[in-house]
Amino acid sequence: MKRPVVIPAALLFAVVLILAMVDLAPPALDLRPLVAANLASSGVAHPVTAVLLNYRAYDTLLEIGVLLLALVAILAVSESVPTTSSTSATSSDLLLPMLGRIAAPVMVVVAVYLLSAGTSAPGGAFQAGAVLAAAAVLLHLTGLLPGWRQPGVSLRWGLAGGFLLFVGVGAILLLVEGDLLRYPPDHAGVLIFLIESGLTLSLGLILAGLFLFLSHDKGDVG
């Protein structure tokens, strides 16, 4: 009964949305020339990285904070899960662990490449961290890496390290330069790379943690 009403209504809504998109006014402020003009003093050669870690570094700082918060929430919830056998999938399969063993080192190399390429080409901390996390998930799924229960001290430092480093650099710059995350142009490149390295490690651990803390193996789920 509802269908004859809902479908036309949804179609009408879609048409209105498309019309609104087409009718959108041009942006009042064109930021592209500004980004291009200040690229030389941003410390990196790639405009996306310059926006993410220099012009709008505060947004990126909050972003990693949100991710860390999400992981803390998961840890708070998943504590109630009873701990079962800590061994991961104990399959007699030889091919899968082999694949994990071969692929994981390559993925680590790819992550480092993405991190270092981020200053001049597409890439950067988020992508590199995601590849690191994917490597950890792959190792977990092939039975080489058991799921994580409670994070130890070093893991906690690893998870929070990127955020702490980011905040620390921001605080020092606040004292030295008088503004949060205003890099001195001479050292911007080094500082951005330092922050990105910390972010990559922490993001990799956080994103992997989203999977590995949740995945409590109850034997091998076929």
Binding site: G123, A130, V131, A133, L207, L210
Partner: peptide
């Protein structure tokens, strides 16, 4: 964005 989508959206 393509890199991020592939790694986070599709992969993770």
């Amino acid at each position: 964005i393509a890199l991020a989508e592939a790694a986070i959206g599709a992969g993770l």
